[in-house]
Design a protein around this nucleic acid. Structure first.
Lengths: 198, 198
DNA sequence: CCACCTCGACCGAACGGTCGGTCCATATCC
DNA sequence: GGATATGGACCGACCGTTCGGTCGAGGTGG
């Protein structure tokens, strides 16, 4: 077992800093000098840990994409009625989003500007397709209203979930991710209208 | 009436080009040379029409903010039951979003990187506050479910509506904005669950 | 125990290139 | 001919990246 390392900067801690700064100022709006200042390393030292600014982006995006795809492989997402699988994916996605907030935020804001950006957009489309299939199956099983287009429902549902990154900040006092996920499901599945008093 | 002018470029047409390119590559990721190429003007000629890249951003953001605030002043948004006012604002916002798509997209992606960006974020918060008041009033009037926090409902509702900019493209064959607005309201107000057969 | 060596972490300086923006001469309209 | 519109040449600042070299902890031989 290795003794407690004395290294003060590893790739992971650098990645945390980078994701935070990228999120705040945008990838294109962040210079390597910004990252240097935020990490306490000189600009040139950054290149001792990563080979380029774009690699930093790629690593950060992987930290978001990996757990998102993992959700789609969980038992709760692959067995049972489609609407229950859909609910599971939504709740778990909210949890991943909370746990990996800076990385998921970055993922949702990426453009097709660089090769890495285009790769991330492709992966996002793959993920969306999985969910779209789930919604379509739930419509066929009679659990999701058939009067709205399934693709539209998918997009709006995930627009709602993804918008969490714009304001959700975990921490003491904040709604925890599991409770938040339940609230999101309640609103999305049952609507905001008060139950009619009848 | 002016004769058919030979001027090929005015500020508005330049603004259209700029908004499109900004949306595609991001504001920071767009160089003035990119705008030069896209508009057919030389880089220096751009400065004959606008004083800076940032002014171009400001003008574009105004084209989004002005009609959005106008919606909140319409009679349908100021009289009647709160839930009906809320529905009116949602439907009209979808229409504005469709009509001013590139500008609204830009508004929703702005960071606090520049002074103009921070100004836009402030205006967005003002707009959100108006809607938050509407939701809170509808809760008090008993038309919106009281078991979810009104601020949460506001944020999720507008997260859903705003996500339209990520995929909606008007044009032949596409759902028109009014019909889309109605569908958004139906999903948000009544939920995606099929009505229980009883 | 200590002189020697290795090696990963780190930095200051500078590279070629691109950035937003300026200057001034020219072309085109009324 | 004067206001309007345009473009080529150019500027200083800053960009991402590279390079030569320093530093100090840990291993090794005597």
């Amino acid at each position: 077992m290795p003794a407690p390392g004395r290294k003060r900067h590893d790739v992971m801690s650098l990645l945390e800093v980078a994701a935070a700064v990228f999120t705040e100022r945008g990838y294109d709006g962040t210079s390597m000098e910004d990252l240097s200042r935020a990490s306490g390393l000189s600009k040139s030292s950054l290149y001792h840990h990563v080979s380029s600014k774009e690699e930093l982006l790629r690593l950060a995006l992987e930290r978001a994409l990996e757990p998102l795809f993992a959700v789609t492989r969980e038992p709760g997402a692959t067995t049972g009625r489609a609407i229950d699988r859909l609910e599971h994916v939504v709740v778990r996605e909210v949890e991943v989003l909370a746990e990996r907030l800076p990385y998921v935020t970055l993922l949702l804001r990426v453009h097709g500007n660089t090769a890495t950006g285009r790769w991330a957009l492709r992966r996002r489309r793959d993920f969306d397709a999985v969910v779209a299939d789930l919604v379509a199956a739930a419509v066929r099983e009679g659990d999701v209203r058939p009067d709205l287009d399934a693709a539209l429902v998918t997009r709006l549902l995930f627009g709602m979930v993804n918008s969490l990154v714009e304001w959700y900040r975990p921490g003491r006092g904040a709604l925890d991710a599991a409770a938040l996920g339940r609230d999101v499901v309640r609103l999305a599945f049952d609507g905001l209208r008060a139950a009619p008093a009848r």
